[in-house]
């Protein structure tokens, strides 16, 4: 993969996880497979990230009994996680809008 692209994705992975969890609670496999389908990242990296986010107090976990196999660990956004998402989302939107305007000045004129 293009190394530039890896750097870009690195920065937004946490934001993506926060956004996914804001819609509904989810478990590791589900988060990993949805993200890897959308932004083509290694699935194994989701767990180090989830551990860090948990320790940072952005997400909390709970176990849900599963009919097939052992209970599943679900992740839920905390209040701190929600605030963090709002802040990161605003920063991301401002930033991408500014970059888009610079990359394509015509777009700015017509809109």
């Amino acid at each position: 993969m293009d190394s530039n692209l890896v750097q870009f994705k690195k920065g937004v992975l946490e934001l993506c996880v926060l956004a996914l969890l804001a819609r509904s609670d989810s478990y590791g496999y589900d988060i990993a497979s949805r993200l890897s389908a959308a932004i083509d990242m290694g699935e194994g990296t989701i767990y180090p990230l989830m551990r860090r986010m948990q320790k940072d107090g952005l997400v909390s976990t709970y176990l849900v009994e599963s009919s097939s196999g052992p209970p599943r660990k679900y992740y839920r956004l905390t209040a701190g996680g929600r605030n963090n998402l709002t802040a990161q989302k605003a920063a991301w939107t401002d930033f991408t809008r500014a970059v888009a305007a610079i990359l394509d000045p015509d777009l700015e004129k017509t809109s």
Binding site: M1, K10, T45, P48
Partner: peptide, 16 residues
């Protein structure tokens, strides 16, 4: 911190 996140991306995992 800046480096390890997603370092493993694109390790040749096939896109399904």
């Amino acid at each position: 911190r800046a480096h390890y996140r997603l370092i493993a991306a694109g390790t040749g995992a096939p896109v399904r």
